[in-house]
Design a protein around this nucleic acid. Sequence first.
DNA 1: TATAAATATGCCTTGACACGTATATACGTG
DNA 2: CACGTATATACGTGTCAAGGCATATTTATA
Lengths: 138, 138
Amino acid sequence: MAYIKDMESAFEIIAEPNRRAILSLLVSSEQSVGEIERRLHMTQPMVSKHLRVLRETGFVESTVDAQRRLYRLKPERFQEVDTWLEQFRRFWSEHVDALERHLGRMESSKPTTQATRTKKKGKRLRGPNRERDRGETK
Amino acid sequence: MAYIKDMESAFEIIAEPNRRAILSLLVSSEQSVGEIERRLHMTQPMVSKHLRVLRETGFVESTVDAQRRLYRLKPERFQEVDTWLEQFRRFWSEHVDALERHLGRMESSKPTTQATRTKKKGKRLRGPNRERDRGETK
DNA sequence: TATAAATATGCCTTGACACGTATATACGTG
DNA sequence: CACGTATATACGTGTCAAGGCATATTTATA
């Protein structure tokens, strides 16, 4: 019952893998809880709980069919996410070529993008300066 | 250091509001940690931590500029999200008109979508059947 | 109406992550 | 080379949500 205190933002809803799986499953057609349960190998309570979240946040809606509940998608919230992506889509389409140039340079010289930046007060670092990359894990 | 054990999926990264704010801020241009700190009113360690996550998961990259680190966006992961949205985009564009019809009906008759479903074994519920909506909280 | 099938809820545990505070590290400058 | 600035990291803490298990609820059927 304490379900959903935060989690307002569409993004937090689709952050959950099982929830995304459910949503993807519902793309084809509406499904009952049991069907979802079987297809996704989740326990029934889990499916119900996730569906509840999805329902209460407007990602899906349900219809009663005898003892079953049939769940299906509702578009609104997805568009919300889509809208947010807009800004980045604009960004990356503007810089596609710049990116390609960047990547092309990447493999020829190791010195990173560092070489690219040359303005900014002329205060450049002296010496080899290997940018020791302590974070670039993964 | 225990940073990122789960959180593989792009979605979990952008689930965090501050992180989304940072990303949105970087759309305009690259920024230093300090600039982000000021503009978003976050503590410096917080900014650094979120940036670390974003960097390690490939949402941004950084360049050294004297003592500063300049962060900027990297498109890949966004496209990942965009790709996932594809399926739903297909869905909702296919059903736009169907949805509009649905919504139009909604306000004229209360009996919900229930009326729409008429196939399925003919085992319909008898009587008023108000679909008591116990979950549709919000 | 007792029983089974389908789904929803409640309670509990656990783990992860966001945040704060303190501190370390790196770099430039006097 | 001591100091200030910019950023990263370590550690401790609280919170919240996901999952498991048991049980309630609803509806169909015998």
